[in-house]
Write a protein that binds this DNA or RNA. Sequence first.
DNA 1: CTGTGTGAACCCCTTCACAGCG
DNA 2: CGCTGTGAAGGGGTTCACACAG
Lengths: 223, 223
Amino acid sequence: MKVRNKKGSGAEQVSELTTSRLSIYLRCLDHLATAGVRTVSSQSLAAQFGFNAAQIRKDLAWFGEFGVRGVGYSVQGLAAHLRQILGLGDPIRVAVIGAGNLGQALADYPGFPQYGFVPVALFDRATSKVGMHSKGGVPIFHIKRLPAFVRREGIRIAMIAVPAASVQQVANAAVAAGLRAILNFAPATVTVPPGVKVKNVDVTVSLEGLAYHLAKTVHAKTN
Amino acid sequence: MKVRNKKGSGAEQVSELTTSRLSIYLRCLDHLATAGVRTVSSQSLAAQFGFNAAQIRKDLAWFGEFGVRGVGYSVQGLAAHLRQILGLGDPIRVAVIGAGNLGQALADYPGFPQYGFVPVALFDRATSKVGMHSKGGVPIFHIKRLPAFVRREGIRIAMIAVPAASVQQVANAAVAAGLRAILNFAPATVTVPPGVKVKNVDVTVSLEGLAYHLAKTVHAKTN
DNA sequence: CTGTGTGAACCCCTTCACAGCG
DNA sequence: CGCTGTGAAGGGGTTCACACAG
């Protein structure tokens, strides 16, 4: 087995486009596994889910050789490899910062534990919320207690669901608490020191993309 | 003013990467406008928010010439142009399908109306929920009533927040009801006929991207 | 003979550099 | 003189095509 590792230390070599697709492949493989499929070729995977077969193979080639020539990939085996590549061995503990409607819904979202991400606590600066729980039973703490909690409870990821104006300051607090991975739900740009990863889930950007599609389509009809 | 329009009918010419950035530029411009800034150059915009100045100009060049040479762009003027390009003239009415925790939180999320997207109703197949309202007062209807509602209320976008296993069937219903724009929150691939636009907001993909970053970083330290 | 792994071709997006306008 | 708008160069990601393994 040959794994490409161009630089000795952990440099940024594999594109995020690739890792995103790995997640999606994993989702597809789980789908096939529950359907009882044992083996799959890159071609049939591509056909079923709308990918390009060569791209699947290229994406996997960054990490090793997982297929059997003439046969394809073991569905369960490849899924296990992808989980290992993505670092999904043990459940990853998550803190949700911002205990508004969205934050509480995220803390209770059943999809997360199912995929190995466990929201352990909510944090907010409103003392009126502190001491309460989400519907699903996730406790709400004051944001001041984040650093101690991160250390004691082994939190790895911060999900930030606060208004856009407060995001930067909350992100700073998360970094100061030792977190190195942030998922930001607010429509705002966040700046963090090197080594910290931020991913933005900006729903307004997606909605405006849809709005553009609608506007364009209407225009086409008007012609 | 010269606008590039390579094909007569509404072909897919401008990349989604570009339109996503237009949304982000719009967010930045609003930020500057509330700060009282009247004029901005592509260079200062790029410096403040971490873009490339040439890219900003290229993105805008697809739609016209909005700047003044030697000066820059009118903050308010450019924002208005972007809103027009993205089709954000009147508020866009949205239906949220799936009245679980996530769906209700989305229906009540204050960020949407602020950006011109108004959740008008929730839809679910559970008759126990029908007739109730979200905390924010959005009424819940049975999914059967979607087609009539779309016509009568001028719904343009469906936000789908149901379990992954049901997404495709719900998307089919949305398309059948005449909707041409779908925002899917479930970790699943959706297939739709041509002319219909789907955007996926897959939080598990983002989380797994963060997990990969964490795994990689640990590995680098282990070296 | 089937399907992987991979170099090469291709294509699109990003970035550079500068002519030209205000 | 400053900054836009834009052709040209550069880089990265996707797709093709095939040698080769099972």
